[in-house]
Design a binder for these strands. Sequence first.
DNA 1: GTGAAAGCGCTAACAC
DNA 2: GTGTTAGCGCTTTCAC
Lengths: 333, 333
Amino acid sequence: MSVTIKKIAKDLDLAVSTVSKALRDSHEISAETKARVFEHAAKLDYIPNPYASSLKKGRSGNIAVVLPEVADSFFSAAINGIDSVAHEKGYHTMVYLTHEDIQREQSIVREFRNGRVDGVLMSIVANNAKYEHLRELCASDVPLVFFDRVCEEIPTASVITNDFESGYIAAQHLIEKGCKYIVFLSMPGELAIIKHRQNGYQQALQDHGMQPCIIYCTDSEDENIAILDKLLTGENKPDGIIGSIEKITIPVYTVCHSRNIPIPSAIKIIAFSHLQIAALLNPPLTTIAQPAFEMGKAAATILFKTLAKKYDLKDEKIVIPSVLMMRASTHTD
Amino acid sequence: MSVTIKKIAKDLDLAVSTVSKALRDSHEISAETKARVFEHAAKLDYIPNPYASSLKKGRSGNIAVVLPEVADSFFSAAINGIDSVAHEKGYHTMVYLTHEDIQREQSIVREFRNGRVDGVLMSIVANNAKYEHLRELCASDVPLVFFDRVCEEIPTASVITNDFESGYIAAQHLIEKGCKYIVFLSMPGELAIIKHRQNGYQQALQDHGMQPCIIYCTDSEDENIAILDKLLTGENKPDGIIGSIEKITIPVYTVCHSRNIPIPSAIKIIAFSHLQIAALLNPPLTTIAQPAFEMGKAAATILFKTLAKKYDLKDEKIVIPSVLMMRASTHTD
DNA sequence: GTGAAAGCGCTAACAC
DNA sequence: GTGTTAGCGCTTTCAC
């Protein structure tokens, strides 16, 4: 096995406790002894066993990040933001993917209740109304911070973007560009962020005396293509589309291309997306871009604040606004 | 604190060792006792402390994934592949981002040598020829598997794609499409995968009696735009471009769009990229797509094989071929 | 200023 | 079949 405090103590003819204190630069150890210990530790390339000390101190030095999927560029950026804070604080980041599966989320979260991680950052699965496992996690005193996809029934901190307002802005943008029949592509389930975007959309249409129309997509890209193909080649075609989440973008463009539906002249498209490459699409896609990196960073910052000095998370609600990136899919000039 | 074996033992008037064995379904415990233990453990919602047992058994149940950056879609897909195996094996995944910084890579890897993780999956930073930290990691008996970006000086397992051949195929594809002056966009440094792609490119050009031309890009998107703008508006313009890594794609398209250089008539573009959305670019981008998910999965599979039963990693070299996705940026029809 | 000892939660000999 | 004991590597009283 590798080099331990015991070995250093033996080599220098000291007690393990002395070495332990010296390594932690305790004031009760003489400068001379500290110097000897440090030197010998460096020579042997001593690296402390993190889990031995975690067992003693009751903290692991790890945090968990729980995500529905990482393929989505939003979550990549969020992990970057989280890691930027965690690394600075000397914490290690464990990543868990739920793949939108509530059972998987439950079994993952369950394990957090016995010391593997000191805190949890989480974006919950869609299409679900179960949250007993989250309640239990909080009851176990493991701090939990939601970001992006929050569970509003759990009283803890959250970092979100202004989804209602963004939904309103997206709809208003299409209305200003002359759209008369705007469809909102939604996802089934209880996901708060989509609900809020949808409500913003509905409010905007109502404010302009227009009739909302919600279409529900699924998790299958093939099914979504079929749904959209039917919508865009049917009787009552929309002239504006709002994609409520990033992955709906690809099927929309795919159908418009395959059916030769010109964007933006026949139909204008705006999507909630974080993709930088949206600017290079054919045509460039107007997006509502979420501040993913900043949200991850803010969520991690809150978590480390409570890890450093416990305080009540439930009043910590941060809203970081999304940004409308106007491009050619809604805009002729 | 939370419920421990000790508490269960006390409640049931048993010894801790009996409870421990019962929970692990040991044959030396009576069915009746096991039943009592299981029932009581379930009732108290007992969750074992992973680091207590790891301290004892010398394994943490965690693996590390070390990546240069996670924003790139390749690495998102790779993490998915890794997680799919790790989750099945009951392991937990820790993610570390080096941001292409060798010092950060060194300090991260150093910490792996004392039990925090049982094994490491790694894609090394570019632009670097230091690997003493990797050698030390291997010397500490922590199994290391490279994927995608390997360090060839370290004798351990690796999962890569056929980079030389792909570079050759990319060049050949452009030659077949009529290109006479093909530029290869490279990155400075020692990165093996780029070197191999570049060598394949050079071989193809040589085989066709053509003169290779390598242009080195940087980590700055602005600088790359300047470099490409100069190249594409200068004296001696190329009629074919090969982008050696995904992130070079955006500046190439940006410059072509801003300078009104038509693709593919004036210039044909092919890029090494994993982006699905390449099909929606303007025009759709021909790519050499790496099997990111499969590579991550294969690398993780090798790691768990050696964690289950130690064997010599150094002869395990897996090559998973990339796929040419022919699209309109190289192809008129 | 240094050391001895207890113990974090769990496992694994080795008794009985 | 069950219990006792020692100990993984480290921290932390508490003696000296």
